[in-house]
């Protein structure tokens, strides 16, 4: 018994360290989404969709998630830019030694996404020593449908970018 407890402690510690130290950071999302349809009645509307971003392999260096998307188009018709309408919510993290992210710096929601990659904007991040393991962010995106928008099925590509610590 005396030998067992330290052995278990060492095993658990090793597992926790292995789970977060040897990880490769990456983000994943469902490959597609469709925003809620809106009925056009002469006033501006917001069409929304929800997606889950999985940030896996978070290490002690912290991480960032940014995003951009071109203006949705349907032929020659366009809508407004995409935005993250509110602070993303987190569900329980997973993995040995995991932790939920603590924001580094200030991100003020709603965040309007840029429409080209250089204008990508940060939508969430984790400061050093937080966001370890795998974390799940539920993000609500909105698309402004102006009163003058024409009916149709619009499309765009949302690029979600995960990066570990960087300069």
């Amino acid at each position: 018994m005396r030998r067992t407890l330290p052995l278990l402690a060492v095993v658990l510690l090793a597992c926790a360290l292995a789970a977060v130290a040897g990880a490769a950071f990456g983000v994943s999302t469902p490959g597609s989404a469709t925003s809620s349809g809106v009925t056009l009645n002469g006033v501006d509307k917001t069409s929304t969709f929800t997606t889950t971003i999985t940030a896996s392999g978070g290490t002690s260096t912290g991480w960032n998630i940014s995003a951009w998307a071109p203006i949705p188009i349907s032929g020659t018709k366009t809508l407004g830019a995409l935005e993250v309408t509110a602070k993303p919510t987190l569900t329980a993290c997973s993995g040995g030694g995991c932790s939920q992210p603590t924001l580094s710096g200030t991100i003020t929601w709603p965040v309007t996404l840029g429409t080209t990659s250089p204008s990508a904007v940060k939508i969430y991040n984790a400061k050093a020593n937080t966001g370890l393991g795998t974390n799940f962010l539920t993000v609500i995106f909105g698309v402004t449908v102006p009163a003058s928008a024409l009916p149709g099925s619009y499309s765009t590509t949302l690029t979600v970018i995960g990066s570990g610590a960087g300069p």
Binding site: S32, A33, S35, V38, L40, S155, T156, L158
Partner: peptide
Amino acid sequence: KANVRIRI
């Protein structure tokens, strides 16, 4: 009537 298909 107006919706957006999004590839991620």
